[in-house]
Amino acid sequence: MADATETRKTPRAKAFDLRRQPGFAAAAWACIIFLYAPIVVLIVFSFNDNRSVVRWTEFSLRWYTEAFANEGIQKATWMSLKVAFVATALATTFATMAALATTRVARFRGQGIVFAIINQPLMIPEIVTAVATLSFFSLIKQATGWQGVGFLMLAHTVFCIPFAFLPIRARLQDMTITLEQAAADLYATPWAAFRRVTLPLMAPGILAGATLAFVVSLDDVIITLMIAGPGETTLPIYILGQIRRGITPEINAVSTLLLGLSLLLVSLTFLLGRKRSRA
């Protein structure tokens, strides 16, 4: 605090302010427009009462109605949600255990390697993981004769783990281990200390991790494309298939809904997390 005041008072120490550099405003606006203009266009034309996605005629909810009535979309949505729920539950559980194991114990040899292993899917190109998983699963399928959506759920679980792991680990690192020791000092068994102190305090991290995992699973194309068997079409795969035959406002409507769901989840997590960390 004192330092900051000092810097402000000293005339020589006029801090470098990026916002005052020439061209900053233009660059910032360009970024915002490139990021959001396509999304705005997508949303606007999903409400267009016309088959065209480039010429506006009048407002209508027609494409939403059609999307809801479309059996292909229904099935794909259901499949996406099913896979995302299972993958999120499993990935979050594993990530929580991994985060506890890497922060709630004395430093151990090879901790860095464990960290790298957990985060591996973030660093390997997704297409490589996809091909690898495909051939691995083919091997298993051939050897055992097993089939089914379980394979897709498993693949999603795996790439969701690092996304769930990072926020949980960050939260745990911010929490001093003294709190658990204080609980033990006050006669809490290890399980009671976990349930009454560790878990409630890490809950915002778990929530953030789960949301991230859910959104990432919902959104995945490459791995799903490789792994998904017949009848395991998720929403992104369905959209991809439709777009090959040209963009329709119906796809705009579905995409808008998907965007809305992601936004809702992220804001919910943010709000809940803020409330929990204040409590």
Binding site: T176, T178, L179, Q181, A182, A183, A184, D185, L186, Y187, A188, T189, P190, A193, V197, P200, L201, R276, A279
Partner: peptide
């Protein structure tokens, strides 16, 4: 004996109060 079995309590240097 683990801490939770000792009739001993501690006032920690940084207090370690449960924030929730």
């Amino acid at each position: 004996l683990p801490p939770h079995h000792r009739p001993i309590n501690t006032v920690f240097q940084n207090y370690a109060l449960f924030p929730h």
